[in-house]
Design a protein around this nucleic acid. Sequence first.
DNA 1: CGATTGGATACAAACGTTTGCAACATTCGC
DNA 2: GCGAATGTTGCAAACGTTTGTATCCAATCG
Lengths: 351, 351
Amino acid sequence: MQRALTIRDIAQIAQVSASTVSRSLNDSPLVAEETKSRVREIAKQGNFSFNATARSLVTRRTGIVGLICPDSFDEYQYSLHLTLLINQIRRRLELDELDLIVKFRYNATGTNSIQNLLNSRKVDALIVINPDITAEELSFIHEHRIPVVFVQAISPHLELENENYVFADHVAGGTIATNHLIRLGHTRIVCFTVDTPEASFHERTDGYRHALRDHDIEIDEELIRVGDGTFEFGYNFVVEHAHRFRGDISAIFSQTDIMALGAIEGLWDSGLRVPQDVAIVSYDDIGFGKDFRPRLSTVHQPRDRLAVAACNRLSRLLSMGERGDRREEDDRLLQQRVQPYLVVRESCGAD
Amino acid sequence: MQRALTIRDIAQIAQVSASTVSRSLNDSPLVAEETKSRVREIAKQGNFSFNATARSLVTRRTGIVGLICPDSFDEYQYSLHLTLLINQIRRRLELDELDLIVKFRYNATGTNSIQNLLNSRKVDALIVINPDITAEELSFIHEHRIPVVFVQAISPHLELENENYVFADHVAGGTIATNHLIRLGHTRIVCFTVDTPEASFHERTDGYRHALRDHDIEIDEELIRVGDGTFEFGYNFVVEHAHRFRGDISAIFSQTDIMALGAIEGLWDSGLRVPQDVAIVSYDDIGFGKDFRPRLSTVHQPRDRLAVAACNRLSRLLSMGERGDRREEDDRLLQQRVQPYLVVRESCGAD
DNA sequence: CGATTGGATACAAACGTTTGCAACATTCGC
DNA sequence: GCGAATGTTGCAAACGTTTGTATCCAATCG
């Protein structure tokens, strides 16, 4: 295989024109069945396949979508959730024969990943995860008239009204978790949240507040503790406040699984048992959670649904672009919210 | 921006030919400095950037490398190590302005990922992780004359003599871990390995054997336990054999961190403490390990070095392809082995 | 001062497809 | 049996670059 076969080579062998070969292999109705099958046969024999680059040049479609992900992807507490999410997206994209280029928000050469990707026209569409994006970049994207879907958390920086946005309902997640604990009889529930520009954690806290308010339980602001999402934080807090877990506080709503694992470890070291002495519900459902004893009761992040919804949205946009129309009903679907659900295991004390 | 600017547009504005624009923007020595800067200025004003597709068509370079990864990437016990490895590779590739398309070994449409990728000529080179690859696929790759480097574990299916191969020395890793335990005075050391076609686990076991032999310690085959890499396995084994950890067995070499975490949990539930009663050294260094109490002493998988070595290798192959030469010295570097190292924390009882 | 060099630029042919349009053959309706 | 419709094919122009070769002009040399 010195030089790969081209449609012209096939054309010569089949004694037809290159256009007929192209049409045959693309199953155009313009060519006779008999010719089609003859051409196909020859192509198959010669192990022919299209040169994607040449094709892209004229169709203006590369068959690649770009995904921008936060640099925090490198840090392990985010890796699991994001990895799983991205893998789901990749799998879903396979169905449409689309490949995925993943880029970090900020790259090693100091140039802007988003601009690079769009300028080079390497991708047909963009998925932006946890969109920590400037207004400037947003308008840059729109100038390029390239389909874009934002996924996962709502960015407070972003005017989402006219954007395609698929996100999880973190308020509902916070409510579900807290309600569950309340139903089990807990009223003094400490809430571990995370200090980050991302809105998702604030929303989980809102959910916590809603649940308490709905049950006429006093909201003690002192019980809302802002951490950093790490094991250490959970561990340190419970060790430091161990005395309060004997009588005062009876449950924890931890907004990350990792902090919950830390808390469990810390409580243990303080002579307290989960769930017997303290009930815990956490958030994310990162897979490790079901291994440790006690197994974590946790709010499942609907990664699969996020992925599916985002990709469906994207497919739609891509095919809309092809036909150039834009129907009314689509506009109503611009924002799509997916619901998390509670996975009850052991740490809440109710199986 | 109805239609993106082309070099012809720039040419017209600058009153030069398209080729001069191309050469100017590519900093060719064939064009006068003055013209160059004039053209550059105009390009900058107009926010011009090359159409990567058109460029690829003639240069036969896409600036994209493909990475084939095992489907087990989906399962969480592999995710962490692989995610980190792939992210490192991605970061390293940024330096060469190369983008990365990651594909699963088997894709949803049932077609062969490797063949797809190569046939379409979408990528300039291939990285194959944990190469569970058939001879047929291997020869397919070579027919395409595309640079390929295999990473991580050695595949028993693969004749690696003529392949570019970057792998970790798992024998050394097994030896290091076991030696450390021996040095701490342990002689009855149980070894958790994993049943998989991948050779890396067998190699770790070989390392374990070497270490014992070197110290004239009898190898008790019964102490080598074949598991599945999960938390459950570690947990169940120690619980079931708890009595033996009081007097007989005094240490564990676990070939995955996860199994070690399971064992720690199980020992605890059996009233045994790590490292006081049982010392543990594990393998992988997955990041979680440093959070849990006791913190894991573990053999660090040299992901960073694997990534760097693989990418360097790839860069080299790519630039060799450009110049078409192949020097002798390169052949000697075909296989590259990187060394793991021990991270001593708490679980081994020696800080 | 004519021939020669060399630097700067332009021309045109690739790269491998897709696709609008024209061309041709065949069939149909009347 | 003739014009129109229909079905099949080929021609050629795109798509936006790169790059080998030709051209032009000024400067240099003998």
